[in-house]
Amino acid sequence: DWEDIVRFLRKLFELGEEVVIGDWHNHHREEIKRLIEWLEKHF
């Protein structure tokens, strides 16, 4: 279910905002944000 995936990604992203998950999070933050925005537009 796409909504569950979007919710999971958003939760992960919000957690990442508070607890910076090292370089991985910083590197992928923009991609995650773009992916969430893309999914919201399409689903």
Rank of each mutant, 00 (worst) to 15 (best):
I36T: 03
I32W: 11
E14S: 05
H25P: 14
V20W: 10
R7V: 02
E40Q: 12
L35A: 05
L9N: 00
F43A: 06
R29D: 04
D4R: 14
R34H: 10
H27Y: 06
D23H: 05
V19D: 06
G16N: 04
D23Y: 03
I5G: 01
H42P: 02
I5E: 00
R7G: 06
H42I: 14
N26F: 08
F13A: 03
L15C: 06
G16W: 15
V20I: 13
L15E: 03
H27W: 13
K41V: 11
D4C: 09
F43H: 06
R10G: 04
F13Y: 09
W2Q: 01
W2G: 01
F43W: 12
E30M: 10
F43Q: 03
K11W: 15
E17S: 10
E14C: 03
G22D: 07
K33A: 10
D1I: 14
H42C: 06
E14W: 12
H42Y: 15
K41Q: 08
W24V: 06
I36A: 03
L12T: 00
H27C: 05
R34W: 12
I32A: 02
R29P: 05
R34Q: 08
H25F: 15
L9R: 00
D23W: 11
L9W: 02
I5Y: 04
V6H: 06
V20Q: 07
H25G: 14
W38S: 05
W38P: 00
G22P: 13
L15F: 13
F8V: 05
W38D: 02
F43G: 02
L12F: 06
H25D: 13
W2Y: 03
L15N: 02
V6T: 03
E3G: 09
E3K: 10
R34P: 02
W24M: 09
D23S: 05
V20L: 13
R10F: 04
I36D: 01
I32L: 12
H27D: 11
F43V: 05
W2I: 03
E40I: 14
E14Q: 10
E40F: 13
F8Y: 07
L35K: 00
R34E: 06
K33G: 06
E3Y: 09
E30R: 12
R7F: 04
R29A: 12
E40K: 12
R29G: 07
E40D: 10
W38L: 06
K41D: 08
G16Y: 15
D23Q: 04
I32V: 03
N26W: 08
V20C: 02
D23L: 09
E17L: 15
V19W: 08
V6K: 09
F8Q: 06
I21S: 10
N26Q: 11
V19G: 12
H42L: 15
N26R: 08
K11A: 12
F13G: 00
K41P: 02
I5N: 00
N26S: 11
E37N: 03
E3I: 08
R7E: 12
K33P: 01
E3D: 11
R34I: 09
L39A: 04
F13Q: 02
